[in-house]
Amino acid sequence: MGTVTDYLATLSGPNREALEHVVAIAREVVPEATEGTSYAMPALMVHGKAFLSTLETKKHLAIYPFSGQVFPRIADKLEGFDWATGTLRFSAAHPVPDEVLREIISLRVADIEAKLSQK
């Protein structure tokens, strides 16, 4: 059991279900994902780099792709959500559509792989 699994176990109700769904989509897109910590957040990792964290806060749920470049590239698909360059806020009642989650994850992983191939 890793840090993402441990974190989700501390939650309950609709928020837990919503965050578990985000993690399930991430594992579907990146089956080789491992669990770790980045910026003191439980994170899914690929090639040793964090590509996704999803957390419950007092006011909302959030997705963090550990990059300020992902959300601006898909801004047109984030209409109706509150977001900044490194954070996407949502709720269990208003979840991020699966196809948008897949695109967020795919873009971030592609960025990681592109940087690794440049080395």
Rank of each mutant, 00 (worst) to 15 (best):
S38I: 08
Y39G: 06
Y39I: 04
Y39F: 15
A40D: 14
A40G: 01
A40K: 14
M41L: 15
M41V: 07
M41C: 07
P42V: 02
P42E: 04
A43M: 01
L44Y: 01
L44Q: 02
L44S: 02
M45W: 08
M45N: 11
M45F: 10
V46I: 15
V46M: 07
V46N: 06
V46C: 09
V46W: 06
V46K: 08
H47Y: 03
H47Q: 13
G48H: 11
G48N: 11
G48P: 10
K49F: 04
K49V: 10
K49Y: 04
A50K: 02
F51Q: 02
L52C: 05
L52G: 03
S53M: 08
T54F: 02
T54L: 05
L55K: 04
L55S: 05
E56Q: 14
E56C: 10
E56Y: 00
T57N: 12
T57M: 11
T57I: 00
T57H: 15
T57F: 14
K58L: 07
K59H: 15
H60R: 13
H60Q: 12
H60L: 07
H60E: 11
L61D: 07
L61M: 08
A62M: 15
A62E: 11
A62C: 13
A62T: 15
I63V: 14
I63T: 03
I63M: 14
Y64Q: 00
Y64E: 01
P65L: 07
P65C: 09
P65F: 03
F66W: 10
F66N: 06
F66V: 09
G68V: 12
G68L: 04
G68M: 08
Q69R: 15
Q69I: 00
Q69K: 15
V70A: 02
V70R: 01
F71M: 13
F71Q: 12
P72F: 13
P72A: 13
R73K: 15
R73T: 14
I74L: 14
I74F: 08
I74A: 12
I74W: 07
D76N: 14
K77S: 13
L78C: 09
L78H: 08
E79I: 10
E79V: 13
G80N: 04
G80E: 03
F81W: 06
F81Q: 06
D82Q: 14
D82Y: 08
W83N: 03
W83E: 00
A84H: 05
A84I: 03
T85R: 15
G86F: 05
T87A: 09
T87Q: 02
T87D: 00
L88Y: 02
L88Q: 04
R89H: 12
R89T: 06
F90C: 03
F90P: 09
F90V: 09
S91K: 05
A92M: 04
A92W: 01
A93E: 12
A93H: 07
A93P: 00
A93W: 00
A93F: 00
H94W: 09
H94M: 00
H94Q: 10
P95W: 03
P95T: 04
P95Y: 00
V96T: 07
V96F: 01
V96N: 04
P97D: 10
D98E: 15
D98H: 07
E99H: 14
E99K: 11
E99L: 09
E99S: 13
E99D: 15
E99V: 11
V100H: 06
L101V: 08
L101E: 01
R102D: 10
R102W: 11
I105T: 10
I105S: 06
S106N: 11
S106E: 12
S106I: 08
S106M: 10
